[in-house]
Amino acid sequence: MNAPAYNFAYLNEQTKRMIRRAILKAIAVPGYQVPFASREMPMPYGWGTGGVQVTASVLTPDDRLKVIDQGADDTTNAVSIRKFFVKTAGVATTERTEEATIIQTRHRIPETPLTADQILVFQVPIPEPLRFLEPRETETRKMHALEEYGVMHVKLYEDIAQFGEIATTYAYPAKVADRYVFDPSPIPKFDNPKLDDCPALQLFGAGREKRIYAIPPHTKVKSLDFEDHPFEVQRWNEPCALCGSRTSFLDEIVIDDKGARMFVCSDTDFCAKQRDGR
């Protein structure tokens, strides 16, 4: 019994080549879900194995990696994934959005605008936007091929009929480059506008579901809506209690057992930057 020696960033080169080919195809067909032979990773499925495989495949020794979960660098799973890459790739890490060359994220897009020399890697649980309307993969692939997205509009319309507005608040479906409807992963719809015309390359990895998709830089991403019910994002009545930002996504923190609340930025780096006046 020998303890195995691991390659740079854990995956062997053969696997990385396979994943890079899937990434290239994904970039060539924006929003299309490319099947890939996802590997078992040393962290559980559903905990970012897709994102980790994508990051491992694009990572070079010169990169500076940032990992966030819920917008924060110090959430336990973000810490765990960052440590994984420090251990297996020895790359530099940072918490500052503007210093990172690769940012792996779960559930948020940083508030600080991204630049052309950055890659944003999303962890995706369910890549198929139509999955909850049609559970069969054989059917949903057909629907994408035929650009048959009527059921999605019916679903959004039913929301309006029932609740008076579209009741999807995260993983909000959008159309990429006027062709594929895609699931932006469970980011709040607050972040959807950041997907559009973004200078950075955006890669999406779903490990358990074995799919990779991409939004190349400066690609049109349009959140689905209706003329009389335009897409809109969440708003808060108060600013961040720590930095005073009125433009960022706020987490609600319960601070006592009497129901008192405070609202603070979910993006911890952005919040610190506002406070430091960086």
Binding site: W47, T169, F249, E252
Partner: peptide, 15 residues
């Protein structure tokens, strides 16, 4: 993995 990932924070979506 997917069942137990519900233990991970989901507070952005919940918010």
């Amino acid at each position: 993995g997917f069942v137990e990932h519900l233990k991970l924070p989901h507070y952005v979506d919940f918010q």
